[in-house]
Write a protein that binds this DNA or RNA. Sequence first.
DNA 1: TGTATTTGACCATA
DNA 2: TATGGTCAAATACA
Length: 300
Amino acid sequence: MEISLILINELTQGKGLAKQLYWSPRSEVMDQDFNHKDSFKKRKTMPRWTQQVKICPETGVDGSLDDGHNWRKYGQKDILGAKFPRGYYRCTHRNVQGCLATKQVQRSDEDPTILEVTYRGRHTCRKASHMISKAVSSKRKMGLGENKVQKRHKIEPEVYMPLEEQNPEAFFNFGAELQVKTEDLDSKEDIFPSFCLTSPSIGSENEDNLLFTDTMMENHFMETFSSPKFMSPTTSESNIFCLSPPPCQFGSSGLLCQNVQTSESDATDIVSAQTSVCNSPIAELDLFDFDSEFQEFFSS
DNA sequence: TGTATTTGACCATA
DNA sequence: TATGGTCAAATACA
C-alpha cells in the first residue's frame, strides 16, 4: 500500500491580527481564556493545516488515519459544492484540559480515496495523559469493533465513515513513501524554510521505545529548527517539508522513523512517531509539533 | 450508567 | 444573506 501525505500549512489566517495571535506567545494564554462567546471569533484566528491522505484503492485499505490524539466528533455538515459531508472533531481533552485543537475531515470530491484533514489550533493537552488515554481508547475501539462504527453511520457508511475510524490495522501495513509538504496558501510569505528529513533506519516497536522517541521528538526538533543550518536561507521558493524516504517501519503498533537528519546537516537526530493501533503514524509526525514547535520557536 | 455520535438549530463571517 | 462552524439535546451503544 502506498500512501502519500501532504501536509499543507494553510496559515490562511496569516494576515494581521490572526498572524499575531498565532506567532505570539500570548496565543496560548488566549486559548486558555477561550469561552463560548469567543468561539466563533476565535476560529478565524486559529492556525490551520490541511493534511491530505491518499490511499491507493487497489490495496483495499479503507484505512485508519489518526494523529496520536483523541478526537471526539461534534458535528457533521454538508458543504456546498462538496459531494461528501465534512466531519468536525475536537480534542477529547477539551473539557478536562482545555485543549482547543480541532480538526475537520472531508473526503475529496475528485478522488474519494483522498481524505482532507484540516487541523486547527494546537494541542494543549498533556502528552502523558494523551498516551494513557490512547491506550484506553485503543482498548475501547478494539472492543467496539467495526460493527458499532458502521451502525452509527447508518447511511452509506463507506462514505460517511472517516477513514481514521476504519480498519486501523491495515492502515499500518504499508511501506509507504511519506511526503509532508507545507504551503503558505494565503500569505505567500516564506515563513517556513525548506528542509528535508531522511530516516534511514528502523526502530523497534516496544513501548519504551515509543515513549523514548516521543520525547526525543520533542527535544530534538527544537534543536534542529534552531540550528543555523535550519535557519539558513533557502533557495527554494516553496515551503516543503519532506520526510523521505521512509525506511520508516509501519507495524501493528505504529511508525518509527529514526536517525532523521536534515538534508543539509551532518547532525543526526532521532525522530520517531509513537502511535497505537488506533493512531496514524503519519499524523503523529506531524502536527505534533510542526504546530507547537514552530510556534514556540518563532515566538522565542 | 457513562461515553460517543447524530443532527437540527444557532451564530459569526464573508 | 448564504455558508461554515459550533452547540447541545436526543440517541445509540457497551
